[in-house]
């Protein structure tokens, strides 16, 4: 589904990714871990098409096509979804309106009919249960005045509605208390399908207790220094990142 080869990228002339190679197949969950500043979030943003980053080398193939040549909205329409670490506020635009507009754009791109507000409301009723959100959240402006936990649940709600093929969760666990973490992870697990894949970017092992990864990759200083299974995450939890930092330097 996704094949990243020797990906290099800079932001404001500073090299952040220094050659990332990673293959993600349908049905898999990959965790990308690493200390602060290692390039985890940059990787997530580049896959989603953020214009602030410049790709200086390597390739990314998604469903057989060159992902890097697609505009951000085309990537979204083809099923790439990024759950933002810091979800953005849009004053005056209701959450329900925003979600329906996004849903309809993605349906149009797939050649499906747009849905009217009534049928969309029914769909929402069902999806809201997944993240245990109440209806009042739909009439509020997008992310305006939402608590940290509400923002993250709102991201997962969007994911539930848009049903991506490749979901990238960028530090979705940061700022969540244990109940919110359980709800968010429960939502993500419920959305897993054999034809979709998930990349979970996280600093801590905690989230991986709920979303169990098939593969764990450790990113240090713009490179993947180690890959393994979920045991690697537990080892990081016990030992921290320092021993890998030392290895990376050596």
């Amino acid at each position: 589904m996704l094949e990243i080869k020797d990906l290099r990228a800079t932001v404001a002339d500073k090299e952040i990714l220094k050659g990332i190679t990673l293959t993600v197949n349908a049905g898999e969950v990959h965790a990308v871990m690493g200390p602060n500043g290692s390039g985890k979030s940059t990787l997530a943003q580049i896959l989603a098409g953020h214009p602030a980053y410049e790709v200086t080398g390597g390739s990314v193939t998604y469903q057989g096509e060159n992902l890097l040549e697609m505009d951000a909205e085309v990537r979204a329409q083809r099923g790439v979804f990024l759950a933002f670490q810091y979800p953005i506020e849009i004053p005056g635009v209701s959450n329900a309106y925003f979600l329906r507009a996004a849903y309809n754009e993605i349906r149009k791109a797939r050649g499906e009919e747009e849905v009217d507000p009534m049928s969309f409301a029914d769909l929402m009723d069902e999806k809201m249960k997944l993240v245990e959100m109440d209806g009042a959240m739909l009439t509020r402006s997008v992310n305006m005045g939402f608590s940290g936990g509400e923002k993250k649940r709102n991201e997962i709600l969007q994911m539930a509605v848009l049903e991506p093929k490749l979901a990238i969760l960028d530090e979705t666990d940061s700022g969540l208390d244990i109940d919110a973490l359980r709800i968010v992870a429960g939502g993500v697990n419920a959305l897993k399908r054999p034809d979709s894949a998930t990349i979970v970017v996280t600093h801590y092992q905690r989230l991986l207790n709920y979303i169990v990864p098939d593969f764990v990759h450790v990113l240090v200083n713009g490179r993947i220094v180690r890959s393994g299974d979920k045991e690697l995450a537990l080892e990081l939890e016990a030992r921290g990142y320092d021993w890998l930092l030392d290895e990376a330097v050596a």
Binding site: A48, G49, E73, R75, F84, I90
Partner: peptide, 9 residues
């Protein structure tokens, strides 16, 4: 970018 990431032009 946030809105584009959700499929809007």
């Amino acid at each position: 970018f946030y809105l584009k990431q959700r499929g809007l032009s």
